[in-house]
């Protein structure tokens, strides 16, 4: 499926209206979370539609990782609601209208179509790449080992690591480990992939191979939410870019709206910082004389 940019929306803190008329696959309304007195997320409204790629950007501590982790209920949000494919995530409402933790089955049901990729890969070091990918297929999906291995090979091929199937993680580079982690998530055939700074722990030289796999996924129509510092990736692949600061969505829009046209002072400052940090060849007229 070709990449399509969603119709333009103006930059605002409101969710994009009319961007897509279908029901969103991820729906966040007024989501908030606090640690004690510290409000980590406040009033987050966000819809992610089928086959959409949403990139979350922002300074560290802005809440973008917390937001992403909330979408898998790895962080318990305590205000508002998150719906995945129409199912309330993590909570149940009891008779008196109060929320309580959803049971394990219900939580797993809501998470069933989520795949998540972490900054630290989180591969299991005592299993080969193949073992990492087949483990949940065999234990959770109850697949026969031979079938699981067949599917594992398919996904490992997809991330370009078929020939590394029988290597242990310690023998793989960071980029390869992250691609195995992506394969492990893909093997469960998720409809949504969440990426939590997938390239932040990598040597700069290895970032490209992981982004390439992600780009390919996006092109195939995977719904993706990506927390990233790779603005180039966001600019090329995202349908919408969401900028968070101090736990709130401060700006959002298409990549060109966010990266080029924005007038928002905090966002501009953030982008300028990014540009300064990445400018390694900077000559001014005075220096040339």
């Amino acid at each position: 499926m070709p990449l399509t940019l969603s119709p333009t929306t103006t930059i605002s803190t409101e969710p994009a209206k009319g961007a897509n008329t279908a029901t969103p696959i991820i729906h966040l309304s007024a989501v908030g979370k606090r640690y004690g007195n510290h409000q980590v997320l406040s009033n987050i409204n966000l819809d992610v539609h089928h086959s959409e790629v949403v990139c979350l950007i922002g300074p560290s501590g802005s809440g973008k990782s917390t937001l992403l982790r909330s979408m898998a209920f790895l962080e318990e949000y305590d205000e508002g609601e998150i719906h995945i494919e129409g199912r309330l995530l993590g909570w149940e409402i009891d008779d008196r209208g109060r929320r309580k933790h959803a049971g394990r089955n219900r939580l797993n049901q809501a998470r069933r179509n989520l795949g998540i990729v972490f900054q630290q890969f989180n591969l299991w070091p005592h299993m080969t790449a193949m073992g990492n990918v087949t483990e949940a297929l065999v234990r959770v999906r109850r697949m026969k080992r031979s079938d699981a291995e067949k599917r594992a090979m398919t996904v490992l091929e997809k991330v370009g690591l078929a020939e590394k199937a029988h290597q242990y993680p310690a023998r793989l580079s960071g980029g390869q480990q992250q691609r195995v982690a992506i394969a492990r998530a893909l093997a469960m055939e998720p409809k949504i992939m969440l990426f939590d700074e997938p390239t932040s722990a990598l040597d700069p030289e290895l970032v490209g191979e992981v982004l390439a796999v992600m780009k390919q996924l996006a092109l195939e129509g995977m719904t993706m939410v990506v927390v990233t510092h790779e603005m180039g990736f966001a600019a090329q692949v995202a349908n919408s870019v969401v900028f968070l600061d101090q736990g709130s969505i401060v700006a959002r829009g298409t990549p060109s709206e966010v990266f080029r046209d924005t007038q928002h002072p905090r966002l501009r400052q953030f982008l300028q910082n990014y540009l300064d940090r990445n400018a390694f060849w900077h000559t001014t007229p005075e220096q040339e004389n």
Binding site: R111, I116, N122, R139, R184, M188
Partner: peptide, 30 residues
Amino acid sequence: IPPGQREAAHLLGMSRPAILLRIELPQAVQ
């Protein structure tokens, strides 16, 4: 064991005993 490993297993739908026996214990023994 880094907690992320448990998190990953948990998200893939593995039960607590399965995580203990398949993911954590082999590494702890080692």
